[in-house]
């Protein structure tokens, strides 16, 4: 029995030594690599990183997770952080992280400036793909006029016919932030109350669930991002949801005003990035036509650079709609807290 004990102690000892030595080795090897913290979880992104590695020999290491938790980890690791790039969906999040001084300048290199429109980038971060937050409707029951707007959804005549997800959702916070920027806080508060009055049900489920509610006749109007409908139309959600998606029409609002609300997925280079040069290379690679084509075909987002065609499931809705290029996406981060307050006070 004494022997068993000694054996056990040996195993534990070996385990400890093994663990630490792996760590030391891992730390001491200076590799040609770039480390990505990503709040986007797409497998297609990982395939893209593999292409990048094949092309440049630079290895891409990834940790994915919840947006805020990743940010907390980066902040606490401070100058010891190995993270080079932080990628997330929604400009509001990028802006908020920038405001905390966590990014360094350099995301928008000369090559990137040439291809990405100014309102989708800042010196600290750059958009990788675009999405629009639009209205969906049931063509059998309603027919929107060409100039219908987000503002119109609060009209009392749609009482009990509108679905949208919860106020805790970042896409809603960014949409409402853009309304505050354009219409002021007071008007937006009144609008939020009107919206809540028009709800067909208590907000529940994700964007896709809102579109499905319109398909199932629970509501006439839904607000959701563009790629969700394409995802269902692609058939990757099964034949039933593909058929359901065909019962719903997308509508691009605010065409006679500022244009449809646009948002981005994007990334920035972190303040303490140990591999800055590689990070710039990776961002530049993500904005090449080849990479953009891969992104739009897998995530059904809109391309960030000219000359790349959106996937045909998205393109069929029309690509010449007026995008809101007036409201800078950097406002979303600044007005996030106000947006949340406005929605909560309305009981959203």
């Amino acid at each position: 029995m004494e022997k068993t004990m000694i054996k056990l102690i040996r195993i534990i000892g070996l385990a400890i030594v093994g663990l630490f030595s792996t760590l030391l080795v891992a730390n001491s090897v200076i590799a040609n690599e770039v480390n990505v913290f990503s709040a986007r979880h797409y497998d297609s992104d990982v395939q893209l990183y593999e292409k990048f590695t094949a092309k440049t020999g630079i290895k891409v290491n990834v940790v994915s997770g919840k947006d805020k938790a990743l940010q907390k980890r980066i902040k606490e690791e401070g100058k010891d952080s190995k993270a080079d790039i932080y990628i997330t969906a929604d400009a509001g999040r990028l802006g908020a992280f920038q405001a905390e001084g966590m990014f360094q300048k350099g995301a928008s290199s000369a090559a990137i400036k040439k291809v990405v429109p100014a309102n989708f980038r800042s010196p600290y971060w750059v958009g990788i793909a675009k999405r629009a937050r639009i209205i969906y409707y049931n063509p059998k029951t309603v027919n929107p006029s060409w100039n219908m707007s987000y503002e119109d959804l609060a009209d009392p005549k749609y009482k009990g016919r509108v679905v949208i997800r919860k106020s805790s959702n970042i896409y809603n916070q960014s949409l409402v932030a853009s309304l505050i920027k354009n219409n002021g806080e007071k008007n937006t508060a009144a609008w939020a109350k009107g919206m809540v009055n028009n709800f067909a049900r208590k907000p529940t489920g994700n964007d896709r669930a809102q579109i499905l509610a319109v398909a199932a006749g629970e509501a006439d109007w839904a607000v959701a991002n563009t790629y969700y409908l394409a995802l269902m139309l692609s058939g990757s959600k099964g034949a039933e949801q593909q058929a359901a998606a065909k019962k719903v029409m997308p509508f691009f609002p605010n065409q006679d005003g500022r244009g449809t609300h646009m948002n981005i997925s994007g990334g920035g280079i972190l303040k303490h990035a140990p591999n800055k040069a590689n990070a710039v290379k990776l961002l530049e690679f993500l904005l090449t036509p080849e990479a953009q084509q891969h992104i739009v075909n897998n995530t059904f987002e809109y391309p960030m650079i000219p000359g790349v065609k959106a996937n045909k499931l998205i393109a069929q809705f029309g690509l010449d709609f007026k995008q809101d290029l007036k409201t800078k996406v950097s406002n979303y981060g600044k007005l996030q807290a106000k947006a949340l307050k406005v929605m909560n006070e309305a009981g959203w």
Binding site: N35, R40, H41, Y42, N61, V62, V63, S64, G65, K66, A69, K72, R73, K82, N206, D207, R208, Y228, L231
Partner: peptide, 23 residues
């Protein structure tokens, strides 16, 4: 696991979570 894991490290739980998170 989600918050503290190393680079390129997935378990069944984190893998399931990240798919669920992207709908």
């Amino acid at each position: 696991t989600l918050i503290l894991r190393p680079f390129n490290f997935e378990t069944f739980a984190t893998k399931a979570y990240s798919y669920a998170a992207q709908d």
